[in-house]
Amino acid sequence: MFSSWSGSRIRLRAIEPDDDTYYRDFADDITGARDVFMVEPPRSRERLRKDIERTGLSETSDDSFALAIERIDDPGMIGAISTHRTNARTGTFSYGLAVSQAHRRRGYGIEAARIVLTYMFTERRYHKCLVDIHAGNTASLRLHHRLGFSEEGLLREQEYLAGHHCDVVLMGLLGREFRKAQQATPQSHE
């Protein structure tokens, strides 16, 4: 059965309170946490569940939502993707993507990004996606180049991580560029 929320190997679904194990494990992955955002202090299971419930309430507000990434052949949350900074007037949005350490470099992230980009450009009529990526996160920079994003700027020493300031790369992708890149690129297991 075809679903616009499924790819060849993963599906996107609502985040459930039982997904707290994924978030606890991700918080323990200091390198992954730094790549995505920042290292945070440990949270209690109850606090984590409340945070997950709060995230779930924003699933449809102003086109901002958060979804779990799970493998079709082995259900269970392996990552998350969320849209934010949605602006219907300018037609711009951003998104964030995280995949657990055990499932990185298998193409799950790029497949999840394609699903969300297709939805936002095709169903919600957004014009441009903007992302900001820590300059040292070479895997994310490579993924976004493969999706067709272009570097649009550099924020020098913008973030403070692991004891030093680091640059942030600004990248953008227009809807027409994404559609053109998808027509030219076979959807293989990347």
Rank of each mutant, 00 (worst) to 15 (best):
residue 81 I to L: 08
residue 17 P to E: 09
residue 30 I to D: 02
residue 110 I to E: 05
residue 158 Q to V: 02
residue 27 A to N: 12
residue 175 G to H: 09
residue 25 D to Y: 00
residue 24 R to Y: 08
residue 116 V to W: 04
residue 28 D to L: 11
residue 119 Y to N: 14
residue 135 A to K: 02
residue 108 Y to Q: 04
residue 170 L to I: 08
residue 161 L to Y: 00
residue 92 T to Q: 11
residue 4 S to W: 08
residue 171 M to V: 04
residue 118 T to C: 08
residue 173 L to R: 07
residue 120 M to I: 08
residue 123 E to S: 14
residue 43 R to H: 10
residue 118 T to D: 13
residue 154 L to W: 01
residue 77 M to C: 14
residue 24 R to S: 09
residue 150 S to K: 15
residue 96 G to R: 10
residue 21 T to E: 09
residue 45 R to C: 05
residue 187 Q to P: 03
residue 64 S to L: 11
residue 106 R to G: 11
residue 123 E to P: 02
residue 119 Y to R: 14
residue 166 C to Q: 09
residue 36 V to A: 03
residue 175 G to D: 10
residue 7 G to T: 01
residue 159 E to R: 08
residue 123 E to K: 14
residue 151 E to V: 09
residue 124 R to C: 08
residue 169 V to E: 01
residue 46 E to D: 07
residue 52 I to H: 01
residue 137 N to A: 03
residue 103 H to P: 01
residue 143 L to W: 07
residue 108 Y to V: 04
residue 174 L to T: 12
residue 128 K to G: 04
residue 6 S to T: 12
residue 92 T to D: 11
residue 46 E to G: 01
residue 140 S to W: 08
residue 190 E to H: 14
residue 120 M to L: 04
residue 74 D to Q: 15
residue 44 S to Y: 07
residue 61 S to M: 15
residue 38 M to E: 13
residue 6 S to L: 09
residue 26 F to C: 00
residue 115 I to Q: 07
residue 87 N to E: 08
residue 44 S to N: 12
residue 108 Y to K: 06
residue 79 G to L: 01
residue 28 D to F: 06
residue 154 L to D: 09
residue 111 E to R: 03
residue 88 A to P: 06
residue 85 R to Q: 10
residue 145 H to K: 14
residue 151 E to D: 10
residue 179 R to T: 10
residue 99 V to M: 07
residue 94 S to M: 10
residue 98 A to P: 04
residue 65 F to W: 14
residue 109 G to I: 00
residue 61 S to I: 15
residue 184 A to S: 09
residue 18 D to Q: 13
residue 74 D to I: 05
residue 86 T to F: 04
residue 132 D to L: 05
residue 136 G to K: 03
residue 27 A to E: 12
residue 173 L to A: 02
residue 171 M to P: 00
residue 51 D to M: 13
residue 34 R to N: 11
residue 6 S to N: 10
residue 145 H to R: 13
residue 134 H to M: 08
residue 22 Y to I: 00
residue 168 V to W: 01
residue 97 L to D: 04
residue 119 Y to I: 13
residue 49 R to A: 05
residue 6 S to D: 07
residue 80 A to R: 07
residue 141 L to T: 06
residue 185 T to A: 14
residue 53 E to G: 06
residue 14 A to P: 15
residue 124 R to M: 13
residue 91 G to F: 06
residue 116 V to A: 07
residue 6 S to E: 14
residue 185 T to W: 04
residue 93 F to K: 03
residue 105 R to C: 09
residue 102 A to Q: 14
residue 51 D to V: 06
residue 169 V to R: 02
